[in-house]
Amino acid sequence: MNWSEPMKLIRPLAALSVVAASALVLAGCASNADEAEAAVGGEGAGETVSFSFQNNTAGEDEDPVYEDVTVEVPKNPENVVIFDMASLDTWGTLGGAPVVGAPLDSVPDYLSDFVADDAINAGTLFEADLLEIEAAQPELIIVAGRSATLYDALSDIAPTVNLSSEGSFQEALERNTAFLGEVLGVEDEAADAVADIEAQIDEVTELTADIDSGLSVMVSGDSLSALKPSEGDYSGRNLRGGLVYDVFGVAPITDDIEGATHGEPVSFEFLKEYDPEYLFVTDRNAATGEEGTQSAEVVLDNEIVHSTRASQDDHIVYLDPVAWYVVFGGLETAQIMIDDMKAGVA
């Protein structure tokens, strides 16, 4: 998958007109929220949860452009389409019904049980197949991060929320888990799950307090990029790269790194020059499954890397590439990240 492809909406204009006309006939003067409320069955039928958020309409590599939005979300919806893997993670972990649509090629194996066997392929992390989605008649659509720019088009189909990070990793996890817990009527379970994650993060930071310095890097192709702490800038380009430092308390070997979605390109000599005690590696090659690329272990198998303190002390920590690069959020993913750090620094 090419993560850098520009976002496009897969929907012929002629089909748009037909579907729009049909929707008007079926819906009359009812709003999308009204339709969703009427469609929800079982406990909580007809009830809604009000959710307010700042919708970022800019792309992943662009400066954010926000608008304030409030959406009425039906409680206990059965037909849900989720584009954001972190949201899919938390939704399924809290017991939400298997979703009827998602970007199927991007769903990690460990989240596959959260997707219905007959689910539609809703597109990609950057694109939406609006015809397929509308045919599925979802009661709720969830976007975030890479898919945030799809909000306007998808909100014409059904109530749509953008769960992109607002604030730190922990703040976003708590906020989004609380919201989804309220939608599913499992508020106490959601609060307990977040408390457990936070307690385990505290355990990891006690371990990392003994590390004098670390460096988080990303391997892409045969190249290396250094990642920096977010320094309070929790936009998409910084939040993911800073997780090792910001969430798990690793002291960075240097602050002289430029913030970028995939980090600042550096040479192998950079590793030798700064020589951190620990090296934390995210393998983007493995995360994207791009053909013709080597694993991070192979790329880092050279004399310069072998001469570093991290290599000689067996302190090169390979992080789960899908959890740290693709998802980097959600309850089960947070557990994977915690386990990675515990195993790497214990």
Rank of each mutant, 00 (worst) to 15 (best):
A14P: 02
E134W: 06
I336C: 07
G42C: 10
T308Q: 04
V100E: 07
E139H: 09
Y325L: 05
Q312T: 10
I253E: 13
S311F: 13
P276T: 10
N32F: 06
S4V: 14
L163S: 11
K75C: 10
V143S: 05
Y66E: 09
W91H: 00
S267A: 09
L26K: 15
N238R: 10
L16M: 12
E291S: 11
A45K: 11
L163Q: 13
V305W: 01
G221D: 05
Y325A: 14
Y110E: 03
E206M: 14
P98H: 13
L125M: 15
Q54R: 14
V186M: 05
I133F: 00
G330E: 01
N302A: 06
T90E: 05
A45C: 12
F248V: 00
P74T: 07
S168P: 03
F268E: 11
N76D: 14
M337E: 12
V266G: 04
R11S: 08
K8G: 07
A23S: 11
I141Q: 08
S164H: 04
T124K: 01
D320I: 03
A21R: 06
I120F: 03
G232I: 10
G167L: 08
A195W: 02
A36H: 08
A27H: 08
T90N: 00
F179D: 04
D192K: 04
D118L: 03
D301G: 13
Y110S: 02
E78D: 13
V317T: 04
K228P: 08
K342F: 13
L243N: 06
V18M: 11
L140R: 00
V49I: 12
S311Q: 06
P64V: 10
S164T: 14
H306K: 15
G292C: 04
G46S: 08
E67H: 04
S31Q: 07
A296Y: 02
V219R: 01
G214H: 04
E5I: 10
P321A: 05
L243V: 15
L140M: 07
D256F: 03
A144T: 06
K342Q: 15
G241A: 10
A14Q: 12
A209E: 15
G95P: 01
V305L: 00
S17G: 13
T288E: 08
S17I: 14
L300I: 03
N121C: 02
R309H: 05
E290T: 12
G28C: 06
C29S: 14
L26E: 14
A20V: 05
N121Q: 08
S31W: 10
P265C: 09
G241I: 03
G330D: 01
G42N: 11
D196P: 07
L173H: 11
E297W: 04
S112V: 00
L24W: 11
G44P: 01
V247A: 10
G292F: 10
V69C: 07
V327E: 00
A122K: 05
A251Q: 11
A191E: 13
I257K: 04
A260Q: 09
